[in-house]
Simulated assay, not measured.
Amino acid sequence: METLPQDIIANILSRLPVKFLIQLKCVCKPWRSLISDPQFAKLHLKQTQKNSNFSRYRVLLITEPLESIACEASAEDLDDESKLILELEYPSAMKKTPDSDDLVDGWLDLGGSCNGLICAVFEHERIFLWNPTIREAKELANLNAFDPKASFSYGLGYDFLTDDYKVVRAARPSTANASNETEVEVLALKSNNWRRVQGLQSGTEIEGPGLFFHGTLHWLAARETGLKKIYVIVAFHMVEEKFYELVPVPDHVEESKDNTLVLGISGDCLCLFYGYDCENVFEAWLLKEYGIKSSWSRLFSVHRDILHGYKYWENALCYTKTGKVLIDYDGRELVWYDPKEKTSKTFTPGNHWDWFQPAIYIESLVSPNCYGATNV
């Protein structure tokens, strides 16, 4: 190995999973320096994204203890908890004190993930960027004051032009507020300052974390048009920092307070999970051509009786390469459902909280502390 050029060594190591690279930091000082280099993290991320043999996506269970599970878990893994669960640790930056086991005060909300980083928000007052794989976190600048009764949505994405990560915060005012426009601000990690940008048009509502895909953040949005409500996918361009309407949802997705709509990713396409209680049906749609409404194609449609188990809600998390849907039941169970075989496998994590919040992410070496000057 000593005779190999440094770029060859970097190329070889960049093809390994993160868990091995963390161990290999202990081999020698040059390897530790190489694996810790932000440029190597970018090289490794690029290799991971183009290597179809890697099971890229994992689901992080925000609970105690912190747990991570591969989205592509096999039936054998689901029967063996020691193979299925990877137990992680919360970073000291997100604890009350470095030696404490308790997180900082406040309810934890998740604001999306991008390239291994997760946006974590406590009571809409403190916000962190966090890589659970390498256990690093950075607290961002204080949030600006908005209507305290507003509904908030967050998103995390990457701006390829400036090589920077950006957090988007959207505040939909309460009904008591005279303005109906959703206010939006952006924080670029390198500057660590919040800036107001173009808001969403009046009457357009988004909820939940944004989904980063194709260099853009995406949300499902509802918009009132007279007496009718329509659903569309809106996008926020990370470079231009502007919202635009990408595409409406499939025509037959009609207004109903009982409907459940969830945006996801399948391979290199956006997908839409749709459950409607009135007909007891659960289905998934794939947007085969980005931004083209006519390219919506139904992946499957099943009767909900097959998906037994949940009491309050079902939240589809992702559609795997093997054709299974990973579903969160009530924040207490994970279900891998195979719509082709009409079979399912349920896993109930054991934890001290008796519930979890799920976050889909990938393992990476990207450190939030390599951007900007204010580190935690």
Rank of each mutant, 00 (worst) to 15 (best):
V335W: 01
A359P: 04
V59E: 03
P349M: 03
V27F: 10
D102L: 12
Y165K: 06
S14E: 09
A171I: 06
E207P: 00
P17G: 13
K149N: 06
C318F: 05
R332L: 02
V232T: 07
L246P: 01
Y276R: 13
L143M: 15
L156M: 04
Q198W: 02
K229I: 08
K293D: 00
S191I: 14
K96P: 09
F40M: 11
E76W: 08
A150L: 02
K149G: 07
P30Y: 13
S100F: 10
G350Y: 05
H252Y: 14
K96Q: 14
K96T: 15
T320C: 07
E76V: 13
K190E: 04
L156R: 00
T97M: 08
V27E: 12
L129Q: 05
S174K: 02
L4Y: 12
K25Y: 12
S266A: 10
V104G: 03
G372D: 01
P98V: 09
A150N: 09
E333I: 06
D37V: 14
S82G: 06
H237I: 03
T320V: 12
G106H: 10
Q47W: 00
R332H: 06
Y319S: 05
S266M: 06
K257H: 08
S174F: 08
F243D: 00
Q49N: 14
N11T: 09
V104C: 11
K242S: 10
A141R: 00
E89G: 07
L78V: 04
K321C: 01
L4F: 15
A373V: 05
K311E: 11
A150I: 04
K340W: 08
L24R: 06
F160Y: 14
T48D: 03
N142K: 13
D37A: 14
Y312A: 13
P132L: 00
